[in-house]
Design a protein around this nucleic acid. Sequence first.
DNA 1: GTCTATAAAAGGATAGAC
DNA 2: GTCTATCCTTTTATAGAC
Lengths: 192, 192
Amino acid sequence: MAWPRDHKEKSRNRILESAMVLFSSRGFNKVSIEEVMRNADLTHGSFYSHFKSKQELYAEAFKFAAKKSAVDKLPKNFEKDDRVLEKVLEKYLDFKHVKQDITPCPLTFLVTDVANEEAGVRKAYTQSYNRLVAFINKQLTNEGALRKEKALAISAMMIGSVAIARALENKKTSESLLEACKLIGTGLINKK
Amino acid sequence: MAWPRDHKEKSRNRILESAMVLFSSRGFNKVSIEEVMRNADLTHGSFYSHFKSKQELYAEAFKFAAKKSAVDKLPKNFEKDDRVLEKVLEKYLDFKHVKQDITPCPLTFLVTDVANEEAGVRKAYTQSYNRLVAFINKQLTNEGALRKEKALAISAMMIGSVAIARALENKKTSESLLEACKLIGTGLINKK
DNA sequence: GTCTATAAAAGGATAGAC
DNA sequence: GTCTATCCTTTTATAGAC
């Protein structure tokens, strides 16, 4: 029929966008295909024209989310300026991120979820994580022997603290945790 | 009938033990009540003599798991010795923990899972997390103004790195991450 | 490619016998 | 308190019309 040639791709992107938002906020297993499709203004029957299973959707949605996340949208080339990393920490470790007032980073929001899923999903996670670590590592221009280790530790503090903050029952403790990680993280950046 | 008076409690503990293991390794939503009960050598019908819902089981199992975890079994009183915390890091950030060759810490294995569940579960998580931070804080005897912040940052590195390591697809990257966090974490302990 | 309709299975929860 | 049997809802996945 006379469909625009990008029609399928647009539908697919709507599905991925829908899945990304829903999976991040409630977890993969608590979101049904019907819900993903409805949120993308489609009916659930047509899901299988795009993906062969829910697991495949997860892997694809994860890659899609990783591209859209704040970290991956950062410039690939930048000045020798430690403040870039400090600004990333500032934004990432903000309570707004915990509350999803900014687009959530799937590395954090789905970290445990992914561990329980199949290889394709974990591969998507790994690739996205490696890009984050590479970015941090590039920013640590003043470091010596511990540069790589600091990059990994900072990534763990970022992902860990936001994940924990999301699980805690009160906002105050969450914010203390985020602030502490900003402080200690920044300390790691600037000390040689 | 002539049941031993601790019969119900023993069954309950078997259910909690069973749930703890299964939830930690595969996540709350992927484990059915029938599976939990079968693993506890019971049939699923009798589940509701012990818990009113699966959510209630989760909260109770979490408290139970927290008590059994390595951290909570540590002595409450200890010498002024920084090495205690270093030893905890050594054990917690071991690949054996990732592979569940030691009893997994639910703070790590269920961190994202918990964030998507109801208040009772998050309360249990928060209490357990606060105990961990209090323990770390107590160990940091050489610190000054940043003592509290360091304790929080170390907790985020512990929980974060093991969670990430579980999600990654290859062992080598996971081990680099764990080693880096041991190193940087130990550095935070010893520097004033 | 998307729709409606439906199959088929899984899982949470309850009823009643012992 | 635990068992077997069953209800009922949700959910993944497929079939066939347009």
